[in-house]
């Protein structure tokens, strides 16, 4: 499969990445290369093989349900561009 310029623009939009026309051109070539690799991998017969969700065949360790965190709001908000009444302020968003 081969991507179009529109596909690249859409992917960039979904990822909120701004791309110039020249960058779309370069990215298109790179992505098509990657798709070429994927096509090669998809040609391998995987009948009867259980798909893996993680490259290592190990399972998740769980933690007990205990509150271990304390309030560090002041320290965490020290790096925020703008705060008020304990809230992080961001450009207005209304969906």
């Amino acid at each position: 499969m081969s991507l179009t310029h529109q596909d690249v623009a859409r992917i960039a939009q979904l990822a909120r990445i701004e791309v110039t026309d020249a960058q779309v051109e370069a990215t298109l070539a790179q992505l098509n290369n990657i798709f070429g690799l994927i096509e090669q991998m998809q040609a391998v017969d995987t009948t009867g093989i259980e798909p893996m969700a993680h490259p290592q065949d190990v399972s998740l360790r769980l933690r007990d349900d205990v509150v271990t965190e304390t309030d560090h709001r002041e320290a965490y908000q020290a790096v925020a561009p703008q705060v008020e009444k304990g809230l992080f302020l961001v450009p207005k968003v209304i969906e």
């Binding site: 205990v66 509150v67 965190e69 309030d71 709001r73 965490y76």
Partner: peptide, 28 residues
């Protein structure tokens, strides 16, 4: 639960804003 799904922050309702948000929820 007492703590959050992926961190040890409290889930108690009604606390002061952002006092129960750890680096995991803040995505540091």
């Amino acid at each position: 639960t007492a703590s959050k799904i992926f961190s040890g922050s409290s889930t108690a309702f009604g606390a002061e804003p952002n006092t129960q948000a750890s680096v995991v929820e803040l995505a540091f």
